[in-house]
């Protein structure tokens, strides 16, 4: 995979033993010893920094020095269908035209939330490809409202999110397959929002629109 997954480490600040700090200078130490009658918290240091690794801490145990292990290539997380990861976007070996589940309000809400976190910085909230990062110089993507992308099968979007596309990085790490599908559902809703016929709307909404005119 082109995009390495976990390359980051979180080290502890040098002065990590907070309550030991007043003891930094001898004067403070002498004063405190006198006052507190020697009730210094001597064992705190070990309790506060125990010999186990917290997430992303460095570790001398592994060759690369990282306690959090990168996912070995080709591993399939528990509960995930292997096929979904090995043949992204394909259902039963065929390129998926449609989403393999019913699109409910919950799916769309989840899709919208994920879209606005992970896609909107570049594709903007409407999908026209003029997000804030693009305005600061990132290459511009085609609008999701282009006829080509209106026609594109669901699998195209799935592939792009999984593997990346040109200047666009992969979002497989951030979005598990179910979320990727929810995002597709939401992109479909965005696309529909610009191509809907008046007659397809519920009567109340038709009324509302007419009253605006």
């Amino acid at each position: 995979m082109k995009w390495n997954l976990k390359i980051v480490e979180l080290i502890r600040p040098v002065q990590r033993f907070k309550t030991l700090k007043p003891f930094k200078s001898f004067k403070a130490l002498a004063m405190l010893m006198l006052l507190a009658g020697g009730t210094t918290t001597g064992c705190r240091q070990q309790m506060a920094d125990q010999p186990h690794a917290r997430p992303l801490e460095p570790s001398g145990f592994f060759d690369d020095g990282m306690a959090s292990r990168p996912v070995p290539p080709g591993t399939v997380p528990r509960g995930e269908e292997p096929g979904e990861l090995l043949h992204p976007g394909k259902i039963a070996g065929k390129s998926a035209e449609q989403l393999p589940f019913a699109v409910t309000r919950e799916v769309l809400a989840r899709g919208q939330e994920r879209y606005e976190i992970y896609c909107a910085p570049c594709h903007d909230r409407l999908g026209t490809g003029q997000g804030m990062v693009v305005r600061r110089g990132f290459p511009r993507a085609h609008s999701f409202h282009d006829p080509r992308l209106l026609e594109a099968p669901a699998s195209h979007f799935f592939e792009v999110m999984t593997r990346g596309f040109g200047a666009m990085p992969s979002y497989a790490e951030a979005l598990p397959p179910a979320d990727r599908r929810a995002v597709i559902a939401y992109i479909r809703a965005l696309q529909l929002s610009r191509n809907v016929r008046l007659a397809d709307l519920p009567p109340e909404d038709q009324e509302k629109l007419r009253s605006i005119k």
């Binding site: 390359i7 080290i11 502890r12 600040p13 309790m47 506060a48």
Partner: peptide
């Protein structure tokens, strides 16, 4: 450089609760 070499960026913790 971290991306080229695969060596991690080492951020220093700002918030650090004791391990207990």
């Amino acid at each position: 450089e971290s991306f080229r070499t695969g060596r991690p960026l080492r951020w220093t913790r700002v918030h650090d609760l004791p391990d207990f």
